[in-house]
Design a protein around this nucleic acid. Structure first.
Length: 497
DNA sequence: GTGAATGAAAC
DNA sequence: GTTTCATTCAC
């Protein structure tokens, strides 16, 4: 499979005849060759090819199977920016990795209650393989009559409701496009959707294929046929009904980038385990926690999605999952109130923050509109997330934890103007591994753990530290923007009224 | 409240 | 160059 830009400022997902294209989303599995002995686990790897600027990664889907580990299919999602007006705004479309709980889905969660988003509709699916996805600046999604990105969409979608009028705000149009039924971002009904989710959704077949074959090993063609013949719905129907339980994670370097290798347990014996590679900042929707990632602060900066910290045992849900819908993540969404994004941000973050602002205005909840107040709200929301044991985004961290420590929780109501310094790279590392080390060395005092952590930190290679440094920088930049005085050194008692 | 680590930023 | 403070929690 290949993806390439086409003329007219369009992004296209082209599926050559020879590719074993997964009909639901344009990611295909190349099931060729024999499965290496001893491997019983499906291995679906996804990687996002990052451009030099992390903010604007080219999305590269990479699919491997155990049957043919050396055969890697890459899907590069490129947006042609030649067309005027195709600002960075559209880049969000290529930044979405579209995992079941990918950033793109944030905008399509019914429970997000985005007042200004088009109403979501159940997406019908059919089995027709998708050949092309195209977005043009002058053709709004509802007008597009060519081969549909998502042919699993309902024909009776309320397209007319989203009609683009002259002079419509580009961002609004973008939002419409991004949230249209045809948009890959909107394939959010887990059981119906295509795209990323497909990664997991269709992995059932991959898994089944990866399992020890009932008889002789399956051939490439059989796998291919199996894939093409079955509709996504059939794949997804009984897949992940209870979510995917995260059972292990590790960080590794892939294509020069730090990636997370996650292993999920679908919960059914026949499905085996699912191994996925994704970016460090990839958010997942976790049962009873909401959006979560291993690097919440990176996620909020990269995708604008405040997250809780993800842990082993977390149950990842697709946004369309009933449990996901029932989870009240309004607090997470309200976090967007904290960000004062400008059109210069030109990202999904800006779009979402704008929506959040509109929503806030419509709700007219009153109270201070100051950032500080909102940050307090943010903290409160994070803390109020009782199901989340650990911190939410570091930007929205435990500042509001309000335990007795007077110095640490100075962002409380008593000193609303005080914000906490963002963590540096080591602190992020320490926070992440302190628990692990504490368990590893039971009985060790926390100070001793700190020594071990410091020692470990010094021994780490630069590339290993890089992810933390990156996250720390992102945090610092964000904090500077939101609170330039954050690093102001304490003048004794001066900030305590 | 202290301490133990590291690092960024203010003094 | 020095100081402060981010996290964490037993003490």
């Amino acid at each position: 499979m290949r993806t390439e830009a086409v003329d007219g400022g369009a992004a296209a997902v082209d599926s050559p005849p020879s590719s074993r294209t997964n009909p639901i989303g344009g990611v295909g599995f190349d099931g060729g060759g024999e499965r290496p002995e001893g491997e019983s686990e499906g291995n679906l790897e996804m990687a996002t090819g990052l451009s030099e600027n992390l903010k604007h990664p080219n999305m590269v889907w990479e699919v491997k199977t155990n049957q043919m580990p050396n055969a890697v299919q890459k899907l590069l999602f490129v947006v042609d920016k030649r067309t005027s007006g195709m600002s960075e705004s559209l880049e969000l479309l290529k930044c979405n990795e579209n995992l079941p709980s990918s950033p793109g889905y944030a905008s399509c969660d019914e429970h997000m209650e985005l007042d200004d988003l088009p109403e979501l509709q159940a997406v019908q699916t059919d089995s027709t393989p998708t050949a092309l996805f195209q977005l043009g600046t002058d053709v709004s999604h509802q007008e597009y009559s060519g081969p549909s990105w998502n042919q699993h969409t309902s024909n009776n979608n309320s397209e007319s409701a989203y009609s683009c009028e002259n002079g419509v705000n580009w961002l609004t149009e973008l939002a419409n496009i991004a949230t249209s039924p045809q948009s890959p971002l909107m394939q959010c009904s887990f059981y119906n959707r295509s795209s990323p989710v497909h990664i997991i959704a269709t992995s059932k077949s991959l898994h089944s294929y990866a399992r020890p074959p009932p008889g002789s090993s399956k051939s490439d063609s059989s796998f291919s046929k199996h894939h093409l013949d079955e509709t996504p719905v059939r794949h997804e129907r009984d897949y992940g009904s209870d979510g995917l339980k995260l059972i292990s994670h590790e960080e590794s370097i892939s294509f020069g980038e730090s990636v997370l290798k996650l292993t999920f347990d679908p919960g059914t014996v026949e499905d085996g385990l699912l191994t996925v590679e994704c970016r460090l900042d990839h958010p997942f929707y976790v049962k009873n926690k909401g959006w979560s990632s291993f690097y919440p602060s990176l996620t909020v900066v990269q995708h604008g999605i405040p997250c809780c910290e993800m842990h082993i045992g977390d149950l990842c849900l697709p946004p369309g999952h009933p449990d996901a819908i029932n989870f009240d993540d309004s607090g997470v969404f309200d976090t967007f109130k904290s960000y004062d994004f400008t059109p210069m941000d030109s990202s999904a973050v800006y779009v979402l923050s704008s929506m959040a602002r509109q929503r806030r205005a419509s709700l007219s909840c009153g109270g201070s509109g100051s950032q500080d107040f909102e940050r307090s709200e943010c903290s409160k929301n994070c803390v109020s997330d009782g199901s989340s044991q650990l911190s939410s985004s570091s930007l929205c961290s435990k500042a509001g934890k309000s335990h007795s420590s007077g110095t640490a929780s100075t962002m409380s109501a008593t000193s609303p103007n005080k914000c906490k310094r963002p963590m540096n790279a080591f602190m992020l590392f320490a926070k992440k591994y302190r628990v692990e080390y504490t368990q590893m060395y039971p009985g060790k005092d926390n100070r001793a753990i700190s020594v071990i952590l410091g020692d470990r930190w010094k021994k780490m290679k630069n590339e290993e530290r890089r992810m933390y440094t990156l996250e720390a920088k992102a945090l610092a930049e964000e904090q500077k923007r939101l609170n330039p005085d954050c690093w102001k050194r304490k003048r004794t008692n001066s900030y305590i009224v």
